[in-house]
């Protein structure tokens, strides 16, 4: 799949198939991942994601608890999927 083929609608459809609905808090993280990929050409490992989200979106959001509540299948894996990105580097 080509990264540029991704769009919001596709993300919503993927979430729907998992029985989830994407809200603003989800989009914040998904868009953060898209930006990170654009800049560094990788999806960050969950530890890196947590730290970076805390810095960018506020300390209360930079915790694995917050991110796991949004993406219960694993923040890096599930959010990357909806963001149309490859699996995070460092995700074993």
């Amino acid at each position: 799949m080509n990264l540029s083929d991704w769009n919001d609608e596709l993300a919503n459809e993927m979430a729907k198939a998992d029985g989830a609905v994407l809200e603003d808090n989800h989009w914040e993280v998904i868009n953060f991942l898209r930006d990170y990929y654009e800049e560094y050409q990788i999806a960050p490992a969950v530890r890196v994601l947590t730290k970076a989200v805390g810095k960018k979106l506020g300390k209360d959001k930079g915790t694995s608890k917050y991110l796991y509540e949004l993406f219960p299948y694993g923040p890096a894996k599930q959010a990357c999927k909806y963001a149309g990105l490859p699996k995070p580097t460092g995700c074993v």
């Binding site: 800049e39 560094y40 050409q41 990788i42 490992a45 890196v48 970076a52």
Partner: peptide, 14 residues
């Protein structure tokens, strides 16, 4: 080919 050069800049995050 994939440009992996910007990825070196993520090393600090790791």
């Amino acid at each position: 080919s994939k440009n992996f050069s910007p990825t070196y800049k993520a090393l600090g995050d790791y």
